[in-house]
Design a protein around this nucleic acid. Sequence first.
DNA 1: CTTGGCATCTTCG
DNA 2: TCGAAGATG
Length: 894
Amino acid sequence: MSTTRSHVSMQNKYDRVVLLVDMDCFFCQVEEKQQPEYRNRPLAVVQYNKWRGGGIIAVNYAARAKGVTRHMRGDEAKELCPEIVLCEVPNIREKADTCKYRDAGKEVANVLQRFTQLLERASVDEAYLDITDTVNLRMKQLQSGAFALKPQELVNTFAVGYTNIGDYVNKITNRFANPYIDDERFQLAYDQNDLPAVRQSDIRLLIGASIAGEVRAAVKKDTGYDCSAGIAHNKILAKLAAGLNKPNKQTILPLAEIPGLFDSLPVGKIKGLGGKFGEVLCETLGITFLGQLVKYTEAELQRKFDEKNGSWLFYICRGIDLEAVTPRFYSKSIGCCKKFPGRNNITGLKSLQHWLGELSTEINDRLDKDFMENNRKAKQMVVQYVQDINGEEVASSRSTSINNYDQETLAKLALDLIKSNTKTFLKPGSDAALNNSVKFLGMSVGKFETISKSQNSLQNMFANQAAKNRRVSGEEAVQQPKVQVEVKPKPTEDSKMKSFFANYLQGAKKEEKKPADPAPVEDTPKLSAGAPPKKSFFEEYKEKLKAVSTTEGAAEGSSSTQTSTPPELKGSFFANYLKQQNASKEQHIEAAAEGQGDKEQTKTQELEAAADNSSDMQGLAEELDAIEAGHSQDFDEDTIEDETLTSKANTSVPPEEPTSTYQPLTEEELKPSTSKRKFDQLNSSSTSSYKKCYAEYAVPEIRPDLLPMVKCDQCGAKIPDDVKALQTHRDHHFAQELSRQLRTEQREKRQLSPMKTSPRPTPPKKQKKSVGSASGGTSSSSTAPANSIAKFFSAKPPVEPPSSNIPTQQCPECKAYIKIECMPEHLDYHVARSLQRELNQQDLRTRAAALGKQNSSPGQAKKHQKQKQLNATIANTSGRGGSKPITQFFTQTN
DNA sequence: CTTGGCATCTTCG
DNA sequence: TCGAAGATG
């Protein structure tokens, strides 16, 4: 099908990996963070507390357990749950003010954006991330050993249709052992052309889940917020999946599970079918579940609904959704409104003006803020209102274009719009009484345009700066349009930035009543945004900005509240920029300790992680110990480290890239920087750019004519050197190899099993990982080499039941006594651990294969020696130590 | 003496 | 492009 800007092509329907991150009862979390004494208490957020306790707009999980829901009044909640904490949405200008939550949402989105530029904020607390590129990269890295799945990233992960994630992993593992095991079923269920994507779906979603784990951990670490996530091949499914397990969980929706899920999935669960359309759909067809839709042909559905909807339904009920993740960080419009029910009807001109003034003030403030962050100006304003006309409520909305607005202008324009669109505006004979009372007022602005070219570069600088700060995936330094702004790949220059600030502050200073000239200022970025006459947000912002820019850097560690970053600046481009200015790159780590902005901490974390990127078995073992010790939720610095972040653009740590000894091309592609270059080449050489064709961008087609064929080192066959072909081919070899290895494996297992009973000392928790050679590390057992997989087979001595009165339960797996409420996490740990074991077994096999090949079971000691050798080899060639579990799934023996 | 919640944003026609 | 409706949380 056509690949428009907003949709991927049908042939790519299973190629994307899409993440939906959804904050758990977000408003409540914001309140709990702000007021820590409310934590662990049932809590709800209400607005307009006056009448019956206010309307509940968010409920935390403790309160939900008591039956409190949205739509309730605060008083009802109190009845159900007397101890509930009711937080009021702040009221300013006699109106609920949600900017606190918007800011918090932005803080989260800033974290999310580190993982991909393809971020679409769907609401204040939800965002879609297209992580296809990162997944693809990691698929390659799996082959080279530059990336390994980590169990802790899959804690709290669910897969639809599986009782636990371990089963899902086993399923994948089995398929690697026998790549065509499912093919018969696949061929019945899928188009022939889709089979390659279908075969890879599960492993790619699993990788997606591990990224999701990183994303959520980063959100938690940098903002303190919990969130849930869905991982699937498209937005609709990701959104659906995210809702299946909450809170603080993530859910994979495997391709093969879609039909089963949909058979009993109420239609309304699908985004877009939760309202009237969904109802009509069900009534018209007499159906209840989404799966019942597959009976209908596309033509039938198109006839009953319309062409577009019918087609959409036809595909949705098959789990196909082609809508692209459209990069958008900021909303397209900004608006606010207020109801004036019953007696509060606006009946007089004065009070109408008053409320228009309030609304326009809010709009104007938000516009100012938005302008600072996004360098854009609204070109249109819409006023919406509901009038009482002869007892009938009549809704209207009218729009006008705006240029160089200020608060008063907006208010006046709005009034004019209402006036000119009301037949009889004032009561006859009166100059103050409205003929039609107003029951609702709304005002919004949109049609944003970035301002002049010269200033646009600022936007670009911010974007680039932000991109540098945020990039963590190691992937795509591919420049791409951010929001609707053309991001020029210009170098970001401090001087430009400084002059911007100079100009900005200056421009803000001479902000008297501006002249009536609407001519956009071209060269001097004086930013003629009108300052609202009184109590301008802009003014305050300016003050804060000044304070920040002049003092923050010098007094980096200053605890002075006067000079610290104002809340609204935290996480903003400005704040980041300033901090970067003021902290020299090397001192950055120190600076971050202040904990001022999340950025700094993150950066520190990344730097440290990059410096300490050893993820050998020793480290893994310690992490697992940490998990087991009950810290599964809050790891510190060593949790999220990911090799790929060594490629972070402005990190001072030299990237340690895996230097594969395999195909030169693959090696090239493994280097993020060159990978980017190659990608750019590919794109620029093709006639249509990714800007025009999202599908090509999201799932870059590698052009065979530009890529040499690769000779299979095992059978000599020529294979196109792209991920899929290569892997498919290697899967084949791997399967062959594996069947040979399995017998050996069984023997080895038996040989290793005695160690299960030998207790090993618990290593100190969260000990810094040794970066040494792969074979280094503290040995935990005299018989097992440090990096031996044997470590993962050794059992912990059972913990004695605590004498305290804390209710505990004995874990069926490890016999340890675990606090009952910790049991789910504890079991998750076992799942994760068995996952890791599984992966490591794969690793073991493939290493043995890579070394000895014709194999023959060497004695255990000998085997360890071989492993050491191999590890050393890998360490030498890759520049990093150790374990690459699963890495050689697509093994390339050489 | 209510407001069966309300605010916000996007998409549709 | 405009105005209205829909969807969502």
